[in-house]
Design a protein around this nucleic acid. Structure first.
Lengths: 130, 130
DNA sequence: ATAAACCTTAAAGTGTACTCTAAAGCAAGT
DNA sequence: ACTTGCTTTAGAGTACACTTTAAGGTTTAT
């Protein structure tokens, strides 16, 4: 699969995919005879994983470190797991913050609804008195 | 309350608070005789709100627009509510993405646990055979 | 009265993560 | 052969949200 097809599949740009490879968010992609990237199924899985993790807020630094360790083999399993655990902790906190703020926002919107109702009522009253 | 105290209270820097005022994330703060900021209770509530919303990923642009509308009075209620609704939708999507990725990460960590167990076993076996 | 610790501003600088540009080569259609 | 559209690279540029700097004024303690 060429770079454009992969980009379209994951709603990224070709530039972003090249950047991801350059900084190690995905492993190096094999090239064809003339030097064009040819993404294998496995490359594509890495792209999906990278997009998912970046989307969840994992830093480029942490993710590229994870990918680099992965390529070093089994001896890095414990270190890799620790990166995932750290990320999980970060996400857990983000999740609870976001949930709390979401609830707060819901209440605020409800409040606006009552205020708007009141405001509309007042406009109506003004009309009646003109 | 002076800028340093407010900064400490919300674990922000004085620089960040000045920046928040400058870009309209909080309304203009009153000054004392010599031009130093003197945060009222209301100012402080705005700081808390700004920190919470920024923390939840609301853009500086959207939040400053909201604050500006707020200061224009009741006629902007509908527009303000729409900003909150838009933000709520953004947060809802982020929440579900984050939840899904969190679960995925949990599974991955579990997988690492079994791999590590297997790896340790292999190391043990190697020892036994030496 | 002098030092240390606060405050002010405008403007420049930083970090993160892309995103774009320039200059070039390759491939397919007419 | 030429045009259109794809690919490559290195390196410059951008967006966002701060963060630091410089140059100065104020307050407090000694």
């Amino acid at each position: 699969m060429n770079i454009k097809e992969v980009a379209q599949k994951y709603d990224l740009t070709a530039d972003t995919l090249r950047y991801y490879e350059k900084v190690g968010l995905i492993p190096k992609v094999n090239r064809n005879e003339v030097g064009y990237r040819d993404f294998t199924e496995e490359d594509i899985n890495w792209v999906e994983f990278a997009k998912c993790m970046r989307n969840a807020g994992m830093s480029v630094e942490a993710l590229s470190k994870y990918v680099a360790l992965f390529q070093k083999g089994d001896s890095t399993i414990a270190e890799r797991k620790q990166i995932l655990l750290d990320q999980q902790a970060i996400m857990a906190e983000k999740l609870s913050d976001l949930q709390a703020t979401y609830k707060r926002l819901t209440k605020k919107v409800d409040n606006y609804d009552s205020h708007i109702a009141k405001f509309e009522e007042e406009k109506l009253e003004n009309k009646e008195h003109v």
